[in-house]
Measured scan of single mutants.
Amino acid sequence: TELRLDINGREIKVDGADKETLKELLKLAEKNNDEKAIRIIRHLLER
C-alpha cells in the first residue's frame, strides 16, 4: 500500500521516503499542527 499525506495542500508520498525526508515532512506537519500527519511520520521514523 502507498501512504500519502496531504501536507500544506500538497499530497506527499511518505512510505519509502528516507529519514531526512521524513524529518523535513515532520517539521512541515508540526508547523501546520497536523496531528494525524505528525503521528504517522513519527511512527515511520521509529521503524
Rank of each mutant, 00 (worst) to 15 (best):
V14M: 06
V14S: 02
E2R: 03
L5D: 03
N32T: 14
D34H: 03
E2A: 05
E46I: 08
E30Q: 12
K13L: 15
G9L: 04
K23E: 09
E35C: 13
T1G: 13
N32H: 14
R47P: 14
E11W: 14
E2S: 09
L45W: 02
G9D: 05
I12H: 14
R42C: 09
A37F: 05
R4T: 15
E11C: 09
R39F: 10
K36R: 09
I12R: 01
E30S: 06
A29Y: 03
R47H: 15
N33A: 10
I38N: 01
E2F: 09
K36M: 11
E20R: 06
L28A: 06
H43W: 14
N32F: 15
K31C: 05
L26T: 00
I12C: 04
R10F: 14
A37R: 01
N33W: 07
K19P: 08
L5G: 03
L22Q: 00
D18A: 05
R10E: 15
A17H: 09
H43I: 14
I12K: 01
E46Y: 10
T21N: 07
K19R: 13
H43P: 04
I12Q: 05
L44S: 02
D18C: 04
L5V: 12
L25W: 08
E35A: 11
I7Y: 07
E46W: 05
L3M: 07
K23Q: 10
R42I: 12
A29M: 04
L45V: 03
V14W: 04
L26A: 01
H43D: 14
L3A: 04
K36T: 10
A29E: 00
K13N: 13
K23L: 10
R42M: 13
K31P: 01
G16C: 07
E24Q: 12
A17C: 05
G9E: 03
A29I: 01
K31T: 08
K23N: 08
I40V: 09
D15H: 09
D18Y: 03
K31I: 11
L3T: 08
G16M: 14
L5Q: 02
N32R: 05
D34V: 03
L3I: 14
I12D: 02
D15F: 06
R10H: 14
K31Y: 10
I40F: 08
D15Y: 07
I41V: 03
L28H: 08
V14G: 02
D34F: 03
K23F: 06
I7G: 02
E2G: 07
L45N: 00
L45T: 01
A37L: 08
K23H: 09
H43S: 09
N33I: 04
R39M: 12
K13W: 15
T1S: 13
E20G: 08
I41L: 12
K23P: 01
D6K: 12
E24T: 11
N32E: 14
R4Y: 14
L3Q: 05
I41T: 00
I41M: 02
G9V: 02
K36A: 11
R42S: 09
D34R: 01
R39L: 12
A37G: 03
T1Y: 11
N32G: 14
A29N: 00
D34C: 05
K36C: 05
R47Q: 15
I41N: 00
A37M: 05
D34E: 06
L22K: 00
A17G: 10
L22I: 03
A29W: 01
R39G: 08
K36F: 11
E20N: 08
D18T: 06
A17N: 14
R10K: 14
G16K: 14
A17K: 10
R47K: 14
L45E: 01
R47V: 15
N8C: 09
A17I: 07
T21E: 07
L45Y: 02
K19N: 09
L25R: 01
L5P: 02
A29F: 06
T1C: 13
K23A: 07
G9Q: 03
G9P: 01
L26K: 01
L22F: 02
E46P: 02
I40K: 04
E20Q: 08
L26V: 02
I12Y: 15
A17L: 12
K27D: 08
L26G: 00
K36H: 13
K13Y: 15
I41W: 00
N32A: 15
K13A: 11
R42D: 02
I40E: 05
H43T: 11
R10S: 13
R42K: 14
K36Q: 10
I41S: 00
L26H: 01
L45C: 03
I12W: 15
K13E: 13
L45S: 01
L45H: 01
I7C: 07
D15N: 13
R4D: 06
N8E: 06
D6C: 10
R4W: 15
E24V: 12
L28C: 03
E46Q: 09
I40N: 03
G9C: 05
H43N: 09
I38W: 04
E11P: 08
N8R: 02
R4P: 05
E20L: 04
L3W: 05
L22H: 00
A17Y: 07
E30G: 04
N32W: 15
L3D: 05
